[in-house]
């Protein structure tokens, strides 16, 4: 499954990093603690969070994540969006809360 597939399936907004929409997804991780994601997420996962600052892109890049999904309609801060464009790792946004979104993502990815 590609990032573009979850964008269309879950009606996500593409905030930045459009050139990374064809990245392959292998699972996901939901957390707002950066060290938790650093220590436990794996490459090619999508990361669900409410953090919107630039450091999410440092983590996404170092861990080679497929995309970051912001919950509750949050948008990335300007420098985070800029970094997402540089890295080619999309930041997406969902109107839903982390619980609902993660549930739907899990179903989509594991099917």
């Amino acid at each position: 499954m590609k990032v573009s597939d979850i964008v269309s399936e879950l009606g996500l907004k593409v905030c930045s990093g459009e050139q990374g929409l064809d990245r392959e997804i292998k699972g996901g991780y939901t957390s707002d603690l950066l060290s938790d994601v650093m220590g436990n997420a794996d490459a090619d996962q999508v990361w669900v969070t409410l953090q919107t600052h630039k450091n999410i892109m440092a983590i996404a890049s170092l861990k080679e994540l497929a995309a970051v999904i912001l919950v509750k309609g949050y948008e990335p801060e300007a420098d985070a969006a800029e970094q997402s464009n540089v890295e080619g790792i999309p930041i997406l946004s969902s109107e839903e809360e982390a619980f609902e979104l993660t549930g739907k993502l899990y179903k989509l990815i594991s099917d």
Binding site: L33, L34, S35, D36, M38, G39, Q51, N55
Partner: peptide, 12 residues
């Protein structure tokens, strides 16, 4: 508030 400082750094 930024999601750091959870006391996981050195254990990681």
């Amino acid at each position: 508030e930024m999601g750091f400082g959870a006391g996981m750094g050195l254990p990681n």
